[in-house]
């Protein structure tokens, strides 16, 4: 089941932040202190390997919150 909690766990693993952060569906990606190009690459790989879904850098740029990211799975 692709629920958003499960998605957030995978997200935190993919972005590999040095400092732990609390993340909810409403969290704004650009407000995460370590949201950077490396984290973006991790998320692209996560979509590909975990969900067999192809996304590109521009898809990520259009996402404001975690919820927006999660919605990419429904495309």
């Amino acid at each position: 089941m692709n629920n958003i909690q499960n998605f957030i766990e995978k997200f935190l693993e993919a972005v590999d932040f040095q400092d732990p952060v609390d993340v909810t569906p409403e969290t704004v990606l650009t407000e995460l202190p370590e949201w950077d190009s490396l984290a973006a690459l991790g998320v692209i790989v996560m979509f590909d390997i975990e969900y067999s879904k192809t996304i590109i850098g521009d898809d990520l740029k259009r996402c404001v919150t975690l919820q927006d990211l999660f919605k990419l799975l429904e495309r």
Binding site: L41, I44, D48, G57, L60
Partner: peptide
């Protein structure tokens, strides 16, 4: 070096 573009290209 456009990291996301290179990643997408290579893995696709």
């Amino acid at each position: 070096l456009d990291g996301p573009a290179v990643l997408s290209f290579s893995t696709q």
